[in-house]
Design a protein around this nucleic acid. Sequence first.
DNA 1: TAATACTTGACAGAATTACTCAGCTATTAT
DNA 2: ATAATAGCTGAGTAATTCTGTCAAGTATTA
Lengths: 156, 156
Amino acid sequence: MLRLSTKGQYGVRAMFEIARSISRGPTTIKEISERQDVSVAYLEQILNTLRKAGLISSVRGPGGGYVLSGTPDKISIGAILRELEGPVAITSCLDPREGCLRVDGCVTHLLWKALGENIESFLDDMTLKDLLEGNELMATRRRGRRQPEKIRMLHK
Amino acid sequence: MLRLSTKGQYGVRAMFEIARSISRGPTTIKEISERQDVSVAYLEQILNTLRKAGLISSVRGPGGGYVLSGTPDKISIGAILRELEGPVAITSCLDPREGCLRVDGCVTHLLWKALGENIESFLDDMTLKDLLEGNELMATRRRGRRQPEKIRMLHK
DNA sequence: TAATACTTGACAGAATTACTCAGCTATTAT
DNA sequence: ATAATAGCTGAGTAATTCTGTCAAGTATTA
């Protein structure tokens, strides 16, 4: 239950890949495709959505590719997923694009609302920076580095 | 994103309806259907699943219907949803029925795992009793009753 | 001007969802 | 007994969503 679509998952992984390569300049779709094992054609669709949303910008021509629009700590996982999959909406009642016919008297409405807010704050708190640090941590864990709170959560 | 299927939603509402009518004995599918506005045929399918899971039991023949297998405070929303929609599994990688080919080195694996655990503990903490109290509260709110913590969460 | 790389819209097969339908079995009241 | 009530079960299907592919562009640089 409550599965994320592949589009959202690939989107986060693509953003991670762009973030990871910041020092090397723009990252091409081809590179992302190879490193994250997602087809070029599908990534085109996904990255286009994220570009239109302003999360990344593109550089055309040779040497081109995609770059983050902000620093990794300013780009949340929630923001990425919202663009690719729409807002968190456990039920259609709670989707601002649809709306509810029977909000009053619906016993479960508040339950789903509370769950949705819980999920949303989790996703909005987590950023690309956290993913980068979590990744670095996985590689260097044995050297006993200090683990900040949020990263610890990722390793519970 | 992360929408619950109608099956799960209807299931929770049906269970709520059975819980609400405890004092009046077994609740028939027809009653649930009328009060929650879900077709009899679909409810048969849903309640059958919940019965096989042991969350409710059925009484056949005239005067029959469904009754909860335990007290409302022992039946969690998580338990209901798991039966109708399978385990919380943000990605197929995290579904115990499928499994992951590339757990190691997958940067997002821990992220989805942490989110899934967050959701699961929310759903397992919330019970039918909480829904009943939340409902009662909605009806009597203006009289200024004391609100326990979890119920307050439902009204944030 | 050739090569690189992003851009855009249409489309299609597969999977899942959200149900319906028909016919059955068990229990109780008369 | 038997009629009425009420749950039991499996099959089937229309609609929707998901997960992509494909073709034909446009922009930039060496």
